[in-house]
């Protein structure tokens, strides 16, 4: 257990030492989205009755920031360690693959949640939000960041260069997050794109998270939980299998 705590501590210390980039920067990015989109769309769009667009947007932005940062944490830490070679410091000790997985995953969750809280606090200046179902909100925050943290571990193990990781981020993570209903309800999309969105797990993370705030969402929170839960278990299992086999880490 000491090994796990130490690795978790090391991963958190790592992002905390550069919190300017890892926490402050994403909060500012989210703030810019909020300013621009709410300025342009506030008067024109009402997604749910009685919910102003700015208020609708905030949970989406919070969740998007959490997911992107959870992914960034594990993936960038691993690729840096691999490229600089200091991954041997973690491969030489008797850390089990389970400890390795849990530490990287949890550090990603913590980074995601810290950024999410930061974004949420900053947006309080622009809109008042009531949280109707905090438990749903928390469940989706943890599962969502957990999934992206696991995906980050997979990407970090798989990628051999920074540009491979960037490709993973640009061609998979970014499209999935942007096409997930952060900025709109999927009901406002044409039928075809609505159907496509239903195959995007991130849509369910955001929809479920939003339900935690407003008590209304595009699909039921139970369905979202099912999809997100299955994704979490499947990706965790895949990550554990890769780690256990030593894939790309131990030749």
């Amino acid at each position: 257990m000491v090994g796990f705590y130490t690795l978790l501590y090391k991963e958190m210390l790592r992002f905390w030492k550069v919190s300017f980039q890892t926490v402050l920067a994403p909060v500012i990015t989210a703030l810019l989205y909020l300013l621009i989109f709410s300025h342009v769309l506030e008067a024109h769009v009402q997604v749910y009755p009685g919910v102003r667009y700015t208020a609708f947007l905030v949970p989406g932005l919070v969740m998007m920031s959490m997911l992107q940062n959870a992914f960034a944490n594990s993936s960038s830490s691993l690729i840096q360690s691999k490229i600089t070679g200091n991954i041997v410091f973690m491969l030489l000790p008797p850390l089990s693959y389970l400890e390795f997985f849990a530490a990287y995953l949890l550090a990603s969750v913590v980074r995601g949640v810290v950024v999410g809280l930061g974004v949420f606090v900053v947006t309080l200046a622009f809109t008042q939000l009531t949280i109707l179902h905090p438990l749903w909100l928390i469940v989706f925050a943890f599962l969502g960041t957990g999934i992206l943290g696991a995906l980050g571990i997979i990407a970090g193990i798989w990628a051999e260069k920074f540009d491979q990781l960037a490709a993973f981020q640009n061609f998979l993570i970014m499209p999935l997050t942007f096409l997930s209903g952060v900025f709109y309800s999927i009901h406002s999309l044409p039928a075809f794109w609505q159907e496509v969105s239903r195959f995007n797990p991130i849509f369910y993370m955001i929809d479920g998270f939003r339900y935690g705030f407003f008590g209304i969402a595009d699909v039921t929170p139970q369905l979202s939980l099912l999809v997100v839960g299955v994704c979490f278990v499947a990706l965790s299992a895949l990550t554990l299998i890769l780690l256990k086999s030593g894939y790309k880490l131990r030749h």
């Binding site: 000491v2 090994g3 705590y5 130490t6 690795l7 501590y9 090391k10 210390l13 790592r14 030492k17 550069v18 360690s81 600089t84 070679g85 200091n86 041997v88 410091f89 973690m90 000790p93 008797p94 850390l95």
Partner: peptide, 25 residues
Amino acid sequence: PQELVYDPFFTVREGLRIQSGYFGL
């Protein structure tokens, strides 16, 4: 190890403490 590797995020003491932790100490 033969390769000269290090973790640029930490001080010497932090690195040694972390390494001890990995070994359960």
